[in-house]
Design a protein around this nucleic acid. Structure first.
Length: 287
DNA sequence: AAGAGGCCCTGATAGC
DNA sequence: TGCTATCAGGGCCTCT
């Protein structure tokens, strides 16, 4: 589910419920995520109090004291579920919770607090958990991650410098986390539609005016998506929490064959594949 | 070095 | 009903 706006929404609800809370116990059902979960993660997290929860691009960062961090990435299909304890006899068993909303399969990690637990579910297992033991490890982890569109360092000068003389098309640039972080396939498509730029256009061919459009709409689209609670598509049954509505505002993503939403434009949205990712555009509006 | 594509994995859906 | 093919919100790795 997660591009920057969706991870931001998850972060906000995590903050509300788990910030300043102590982890009592961790149960790992399946360690084989994108990277194998380290064998001592349960011990590392046991009895640790969460002092802060933040987000960097599509990564969640759980902060503990003495510069210890847990990175959580949701991959393509990762979700976090909050399950309240409803039984005086606290048991580390899924069946002891009112968990009708919880999927029955792929609940890989359970993090127990005194009155609730957080369950990590991920059918495709492209997500991961990684524990970092110093500020330096944290900095190193993010050293190849570029600025988010909403950060100050993402400005016209930066854009121009990065795109000039480059053969790579602008769609791939927007998906390249080293160049700009937090965007994924949905928002890259949407931003290019708003900016009226052909996704196939090479970095070196992007005009100054087009740079301004990318600058403007990458911020605008993300802000609006966050405001709408993110996008919820391909809703997994029984999953609660994914209540975003930005998918209702998609202009081109998933709209193949639909009329272009631009007033007076009579073209239909078409779909191409760029680097194995579906790319939607109006060939009349996007030049 | 830069850029494109393969691949990790499961599930939903479409078409026969 | 049951196959098969295709597609999916990410990103690391390998090849050219």
């Amino acid at each position: 589910m997660p591009e920057l706006p969706e991870v931001e929404i998850v972060k906000q609800s995590l903050q509300k419920r788990a910030e300043f809370k102590k982890i009592n116990k961790v149960l790992i059902q399946n360690r084989n995520l994108r990277f194998k979960i380290q064998s001592n993660l349960e011990n590392l997290l046991k009895n640790k109090k969460i002092i802060k929860i933040s987000r960097k691009s599509k990564y969640l960062i759980i902060h503990f004291k003495n510069e210890k961090y847990l990175i959580i990435h949701l991959g393509m299909s990762g979700t976090l579920h909050f399950i309240k304890r409803n039984n005086k006899n606290f048991q580390t068993n899924l069946s002891f919770y009112n968990s009708k909303q919880l999927p029955t399969k792929h609940n890989h990690v359970e993090i127990f607090f005194s009155n609730f637990k957080i369950v990590y579910n991920d059918p495709r297992r492209f997500g991961f958990f990684k524990f970092l033991i110093s500020k330096k490890e944290l900095n190193d982890f993010f050293k190849n991650i570029g600025p988010e569109p909403l950060e100050a360092s993402f400005d016209i000068i930066y854009l121009k410098k990065k795109l000039q003389n480059r053969e790579k098309n602008i769609k791939n640039f927007l998906l390249d986390q080293k160049f700009v972080s937090g965007l994924g396939n949905i928002y890259a498509n949407e931003i290019l539609f708003y900016s009226k730029i052909d996704p196939f256009k090479k970095g070196k061919d992007i005009s100054n005016n087009e740079l301004k459009q990318i600058f403007k709409y990458s911020k605008l689209v993300l802000k609006k998506a966050i405001k709408k609670g993110g996008s919820t598509i391909r809703n997994f049954k029984n999953v609660k929490g994914n209540i975003g509505t930005f998918q209702k505002e998609f202009k081109v993503y998933g709209k193949e064959g639909i009329n272009c939403p631009t007033k007076k434009c009579r073209e239909k949205i078409i779909r191409f594949i760029i680097s194995n990712r579906s790319t939607y555009l109006c060939k009349y509006c996007q030049k």
